[in-house]
Design a protein around this nucleic acid. Structure first.
Lengths: 157, 157
DNA sequence: TTAAAGTAGATGCGAACGTATATATCAGTG
DNA sequence: CACTGATATATACGTTCGCATCTACTTTAA
């Protein structure tokens, strides 16, 4: 039954995420930020320090209005700033400030050490690589799919 | 560079979780509940339909006061009820009602089909099993660890 | 046996969230 | 070029969240 192994894979992945995240929260890995705020700065850094707000939103599990307000707060704190898009008047470009990049880096380096401590204690390096490959393949494959069981229809056609 | 493969494994797992969860939210898999409410009913069902509140809390990413209030709401909706613990007067036993079990099952069956559609489109059955094993091993190994890099002892010393 | 420390859950309160909707801009069609 | 629909972001508003703290019960040990 492939429906069985599929949901077992998802449940195992999801529960692992919950358990590790609990550890990170418990250890206050993201202080002085909230984990969701760090997530914004991290993804912004990964996108080269500047991104359209909707692109950033695509990588996060929060709604568009929540992200808009979070950016208000991150901007007030001096970690990001908004710029107008030169090509599309509707878009807002979110830019990581120097201070924001410093904060992200400071938290990130500490956080990465904690990640390594947990992951290394559980998996061999080979297993870590296998997990990364499988999780990436899952993400990519799921992205290619439309919302539901999905007919032939193509997206990025 | 084991720190590298460790964080790559975590990031891949985390991002896969975000992407799939976005799909589930977008498709309203958990309606008429919120995803966190479904998560409570699902975990309660997995624990045999009754659990101490703190045990339930251990499996969720929400704080104790938030869970307490969520149980208020789930109780008002008729999905769970609180019972006194026979062995410890401080504890509250959360019990899944028949109606709660029916709702969890109804949502769960639909949700599992969606999971299978996404996971099957991305991974072979063998890969799904490998992913489940690796994610489980990661969770179990991380649980065995203390909070930080873990010196021999040391609390908040 | 009782005082101190520890643990489980509930509550006050300000902050953050999501849904619905408004505003502004862009894209396509007649 | 209007006009219709789509897209990107912002705002109003009620709900939910987390932090700090309180209450109640249990455990420890003097």
């Amino acid at each position: 039954m492939t429906i069985r192994s599929a949901s077992e894979a998802w449940e195992a992945l999801f529960r692992a995420q919950v358990t590790l995240m609990q550890k990170f929260e418990e250890a206050k890995d993201f202080a002085p930020l909230r984990s969701r705020e760090y997530d914004v700065l991290f993804n912004l850094a990964q996108l080269g320090g500047r991104a359209r707000q909707w692109e950033l939103n695509e990588r996060l599990l929060i709604t568009q209005p929540s992200l808009s307000r979070m950016i208000d707060r991150l901007q007030a704190a001096g970690y990001v700033r908004r710029e107008a898009s030169p090509s599309d008047g509707r878009e807002v470009i979110v830019v990581l400030t120097e201070e924001g990049a410093r904060m992200q880096g400071r938290i990130g380096r500490r956080h990465v050490r904690h990640i390594a401590a947990l992951v290394d204690s559980a998996l061999t390096e080979e297993e870590q690589q296998q997990l990364a490959v499988l999780a990436d393949k899952l993400r990519t494959g799921a992205l290619a799919r439309g919302t539901r069981t999905e007919e032939p229809r193509a997206e990025t056609a």
